[in-house]
């Protein structure tokens, strides 16, 4: 289609007398061709028409000029370049899409103020041996018990294999002196009372569940032991819950 256009331009370029419109990869072949001819006929001076053969100055449209300038070097080059461009385009799009999705997901996760309150730090030095402390953590009470040596011994020696929710005391504490549990009865969610009940641990006033000094259910309707939250001792005298 645009062959004649290209052709004429190419040759007139070679003639180094370029006043012709530059070639665009445009589909307006016919029009441009006309324009080219018009230009060729109106321009003065020594214009060598691309369609002229020899010196006669007579137009001869049967001459097929060389397209070498516009022919690619090799097919492989072209293919690799095209596939590279398309592939890189796809790859960059994938990169952008991944980051967009990721940013939206991050945006939906817990915000900084929630995260800041998700952890509670407790100073253990102020809790004497044999005392209960209740603190609030994420809206729930947490029991912290500084157990005495007798209580540790008692919790350890209980035959836990036959209990309703069998669990050894060592599984429930990180340091035997410190028992940390969520203060929510596993039956219907009341808050048990400390240092009460038949087993020297906790007693739920709502429906009469008895927990022992390791927070295990011993008697009453509750099905499970008191839950142990995640906690850590960053230093000897401080505790971080959460």
């Amino acid at each position: 289609m645009s062959v004649p256009t290209r052709l004429s331009t190419a040759i007139s370029r070679q003639a180094a007398r370029q006043t012709l419109p530059a070639v665009r990869a445009a589909p307006l072949g016919v029009q441009q061709q006309k324009r080219t001819r018009a230009d060729a006929s109106t321009s003065h001076a020594e214009f060598n028409s691309p369609f002229t053969r020899g010196t006669s100055g007579k137009k001869d449209t049967t001459v097929i000029p060389s397209f070498k300038k516009y022919r690619s070097g090799s097919e492989t080059n072209n293919k690799v370049f095209q596939y590279f461009m398309v592939g890189a385009f796809g790859g960059l799009s994938a990169l952008g899409a991944k980051n967009t999705v990721q940013d939206f997901l991050v945006n939906m996760s817990a915000s900084a103020d929630v995260l800041a309150q998700a952890k509670v730090e407790v100073d253990l030095a102020s809790i004497p041996e044999g005392k209960n402390v209740i603190i609030k953590w994420r809206g729930k009470p947490v029991f912290i018990r500084h157990r005495t040596a007798d209580e540790i011994k008692e919790a350890d020696e209980t035959k836990w294999e036959s209990l309703r929710d069998p669990q050894a005391d060592s599984e429930r504490v990180k340091k035997p002196e410190w028992l940390i549990m969520l203060g929510v009865c596993t039956h219907l969610g009341c808050v048990p009372i400390g240092e009460a009940g038949d087993f020297g641990g906790w007693f739920c006033p709502c429906h009469g569940s008895h927990y022992d000094i390791s927070g295990r259910i011993r008697k009453g309707p509750a099905p499970l032991n008191l839950e142990v939250p995640e906690y850590d001792f960053p230093e000897d005298t401080s505790l971080v819950i959460g």
Binding site: G87, A88, G90, G91, L92, A94, L95, K98, N99
Partner: peptide, 9 residues
Amino acid sequence: IFVGAFATN
């Protein structure tokens, strides 16, 4: 392409 995207990232 995907390995390239990862590396580019």
